[in-house]
Computed example of a mutant assay.
Amino acid sequence: MLIHPWDAAHEDREWRDWLARHDFGQLAVNGLPGEPPWVQPMHFRYDSEPGPHGQVLAHLARPNPLWRALEQNPTVLLSVVDDYAFVPGPWAAPEGAPAEHGTPTSFYAAVQLRCTAHVVDDPAEKAESLNRQVAHFQPGGGTDPVAPGEAPFGRLLSGLRVLRLDVTEVRAKFKYANHKPEPVQDRIVEGLTSRAGRGDAEAAAHQVRRRP
């Protein structure tokens, strides 16, 4: 992922705060010899500790073919992308230039976590991890806790495996037009606000927030 200086996160807190609000991504795993990489969409829980970059918890069904690839190479990449919007050329035209000379572009926020994967099969550890994940997605409760051998979920533990991903490197990108003159930025924000499509409000907010 190319990251220009003006697209880079201003500080770690920026990407950490963004990731705290985004918990669905795609896990890329190196394929077995002769096969392309495998990509698994999944929900996950990100915790800023332990380690300098934090840790990710997730779980997948035991029959998932991903496990064989992880045994060969535990180095993986979790990619999270959101707050994206298409910006029509006229919105981004340079000051004083004809609108039709503007270059269309894409806006988006992206965080890529390079991780070392650990597979958890111990029933007690799996239950603890699953309860932590449910607590993240259902902070108000409403679901019985998981306990090995106990109803209603204990019997399901054998059908899944937990992934603990220790984050070793982070690449974060906020691709908005903060390198362009403010009048151009204002025009883009106005266009996004007026269009009000999927992701437009979030993209406009990033555009305003990241101004120097």
Results as ranks from 00 to 15, higher is better:
189 V>D: 12
88 P>F: 09
59 H>M: 06
85 A>T: 04
4 H>F: 14
1 M>A: 11
41 P>S: 07
146 V>T: 10
36 P>E: 08
165 L>Y: 11
122 D>V: 09
177 A>W: 00
89 G>E: 03
166 D>T: 02
174 F>N: 02
173 K>N: 13
31 G>F: 07
164 R>A: 14
6 W>H: 15
181 P>C: 04
30 N>S: 12
166 D>M: 00
19 L>Y: 03
152 P>R: 04
165 L>P: 08
201 A>G: 14
149 G>V: 07
117 A>M: 14
198 R>M: 12
90 P>D: 05
110 A>K: 15
12 D>G: 10
84 Y>C: 10
193 T>A: 09
183 P>K: 07
178 N>A: 11
187 R>V: 05
177 A>V: 06
194 S>E: 14
52 P>Q: 13
150 E>T: 11
3 I>V: 15
162 V>E: 10
82 D>E: 11
210 R>H: 13
124 A>C: 00
21 R>S: 10
174 F>D: 02
60 L>W: 14
101 H>E: 13
212 P>D: 06
13 R>A: 15
2 L>D: 14
132 R>N: 11
102 G>M: 13
152 P>G: 06
106 S>V: 14
47 D>F: 00
112 Q>P: 05
51 G>W: 10
172 A>D: 03
99 A>N: 01
52 P>K: 10
189 V>G: 05
40 Q>R: 00
80 V>S: 11
39 V>L: 15
114 R>F: 08
114 R>Y: 13
131 N>P: 00
62 R>N: 05
107 F>R: 04
168 T>G: 14
155 R>H: 14
96 G>Q: 09
90 P>L: 05
82 D>L: 05
182 E>D: 15
137 F>T: 04
18 W>L: 04
191 G>F: 10
145 P>S: 10
111 V>W: 09
18 W>A: 01
98 P>E: 05
139 P>C: 07
46 Y>W: 15
106 S>L: 15
61 A>P: 02
128 E>S: 15
95 E>F: 02
59 H>D: 03
163 L>Y: 06
185 Q>P: 00
118 H>M: 04
18 W>D: 01
111 V>P: 13
24 F>V: 06
150 E>N: 01
155 R>D: 10
204 A>W: 08
147 A>W: 09
149 G>P: 04
105 T>S: 15
57 L>D: 11
119 V>H: 07
24 F>Q: 03
76 V>S: 02
188 I>L: 12
170 V>L: 06
206 H>T: 08
149 G>H: 04
68 R>H: 14
11 E>C: 11
185 Q>M: 06
71 E>A: 12
205 A>K: 09
153 F>I: 01
69 A>K: 12
134 V>H: 01
120 V>C: 06
88 P>E: 11
186 D>V: 10
18 W>R: 05
